[in-house]
């Protein structure tokens, strides 16, 4: 928030608040209004967080927990599985987040132009977001089918070797390298081909949502600003750089914050794609096992409640820190 305007607003808020209180006093009925929502949120969203922390310090089956201190956390941080899941998560976010944001902004900017059929385009672009992940993953598993899928058809058309997509655990660098006869060292092998396929699916699914939000942000920018800059002789690119981007920062900030949270929490896309490709949870050789998938596996398959909770708590801390970093790094640059 730029300093002065916000100070003024705060002063105004303060003044009106004082007025209201002196006029009407404390309205105790407010608590009745809040009660139903608060009870539900407290019972199923706040209390479980505290309970999860408690469980993460225990081991054993439900109702027979034994206190083990920080053992579950130590087990996670010392084991290879956790770090593998963390690196898969980071690859997944790196593959989906920047592409979604950039494509979403570009699409929104194109849709913002005064052309015919904007409403229809917008409706169509948002559609993938509305459809359930289970439904669209079945279709996308077919797109990535090694024998008859569209993805390999396209690769062959442009003269590339087909890939095994959702059932290919090797890194993309390794697969590409092998095709030209080069074997790459471990660090250059990159994310698995299976994870890339899931990421393409995720981008397709979430792009419409980001586009609609950016579009809403663009519509809030006063048109006179463009008129004025145009009279001053600014070209389209300059308009975009010096008016659109700066005035869009509140929207961009909002989109970045929620997208970071959503992509670190992603589960359905991966789970559904693994299922649709007839893979076990986590994909081929665990190469699509993000932290959420790994955690669900520990919970659902192995009934390791304490360990699963410890992983969940670690993931929450990670998301919380990243959100705070976003607020620090981006929040300060938001221009109102």
């Amino acid at each position: 928030m730029s300093g002065f305007a916000s100070l003024e607003r705060m002063a105004h808020d303060r003044a009106t608040t004082r007025n209201h209180i002196s006029r009407r006093g404390v309205e105790w009925t407010a608590f009745l209004f809040i009660l139903p929502a608060f009870v539900l949120i407290a019972a199923f969203h706040i209390f479980p967080v505290l309970y999860a922390i408690y469980i993460s310090l225990h081991t054993g089956a439900i109702n027979r927990f034994t206190y083990v201190g920080l053992d579950n956390y130590i087990r996670a941080l010392e084991g290879a599985d956790f770090w593998n899941a963390l690196s898969v998560t980071i690859w997944y976010v790196a593959l989906t987040l920047p592409a979604t944001l950039v494509l979403g902004l570009v699409l929104a900017y194109l849709l913002y132009q005064p052309i015919r059929g904007r409403g229809i385009y917008r409706t169509i672009y948002f559609l993938p977001y509305v459809i359930s992940t289970v439904a669209s993953s079945i279709v996308w598993a077919w797109v990535f089918d090694p024998q008859s899928g569209v993805a390999n058809l396209i690769l062959q058309r442009i003269g590339l070797a087909p890939l095994r997509w959702l059932i290919e655990p090797s890194g993309i660098g390794q697969v590409m390298g092998a095709q030209v006869g080069v074997s790459l060292p471990g660090w250059a092998q990159g994310p698995s081909v299976a994870l890339i396929a899931v990421a393409i699916f995720t981008i397709w699914q979430s792009l419409g949502y980001v586009t609609v939000i950016f579009l809403a942000g663009l519509t809030n920018i006063p048109g006179e600003l463009y008129d004025a800059a145009h009279i001053d002789g600014a070209n389209a690119l300059q308009l975009f750089r010096h008016i659109t981007l700066p005035l869009l920062t509140p929207t961009t900030f909002f989109v970045v914050v929620i997208s970071v949270i959503a992509s670190f929490q992603a589960f359905n896309q991966i789970f559904a794609m693994n299922t649709a490709a007839a893979q076990t949870l986590g994909g081929p050789l665990g190469s699509t096992s993000t932290l959420t998938v790994f955690m669900f596996d520990q919970l659902y398959t192995y009934a390791n409640y304490g360990y699963a909770s410890a992983i969940a708590v670690l993931l929450s801390i990670l998301i919380l820190v990243l959100t705070l970093v976003n607020f620090r790094a981006l929040g300060a640059r938001v221009q109102y």
Binding site: V49, S309, L315
Partner: peptide
């Protein structure tokens, strides 16, 4: 901000 997955076991 809390990931849905955290509340899964307790819920």
């Amino acid at each position: 901000i809390v990931p849905f997955e955290v509340t899964l076991v307790p819920n």
